[in-house]
């Protein structure tokens, strides 16, 4: 029996096949984010006889599973948010939003407020871990402090974040 491989997906095949053993081998770098599945046709052909060769084919779907190869990305950096000094305590005054191309926990994001400058502003702001929403916890006063600098980080939920 001899084996042949045909890619049914439009792009060039990322796989090769050993014609004699039928081993399916990775021939190009895979990337789930670009192409999560590959459809192939493997055909087995008997070669012992030249008079009436027979063949049959099987469809193979190769699912590419995710690894955490993308870090979260911020849409903007820095983010500038204007908060009126009469903003109500408890009001959502901004939203932090990052994206991650990976799947499942590898792309699931959590937001953290790392630091606030000046430091006495630490008690004034809270960032929701899940949504990235920025909430005012205490009143602000333009005449006392006109600008706060917040460092917000985002992490994916992979084991190797």
């Amino acid at each position: 029996v001899m084996y042949t491989l045909t890619s049914l997906s439009p792009a060039e095949s990322a796989f090769d096949m050993d014609r004699s053993s039928g081993a399916l081998v990775v021939a190009r770098q895979l990337d789930r984010e670009t192409r999560p599945e590959h459809r192939l046709e493997v055909r087995a052909l008997d070669t012992s006889t030249s008079s009436n060769p027979q063949s049959s084919a099987v469809l193979v779907r190769v699912d590419i599973t995710d690894v955490n190869d993308n870090a979260p990305r911020w849409e903007r950096d820095p983010v500038v948010i204007a908060v009126p000094e009469d903003a109500a305590v408890g009001a959502a005054v901004g939203n932090f939003s990052a994206t991650d191309a990976d799947a499942g926990p590898n792309g699931e994001l959590r937001y953290f407020l790392d630091s606030v400058e000046p430091e006495n502003g630490r008690s004034k702001f809270a960032v929701d871990r899940l949504t990235g929403s920025l909430t005012l916890l205490e009143g602000v006063d333009f005449e006392s402090v006109a600008r706060y600098t917040l460092v917000v980080s985002v992490k994916d939920q992979a084991v190797n974040e």
Binding site: V26, V62, I64, D69
Partner: peptide, 16 residues
């Protein structure tokens, strides 16, 4: 159906 991680190196044998 065959599953393969996206970080395998070229030459990796996916299946037989």
């Amino acid at each position: 159906m065959v599953k393969v991680r996206e970080d395998v190196s070229i030459g990796f044998v996916v299946g037989n």
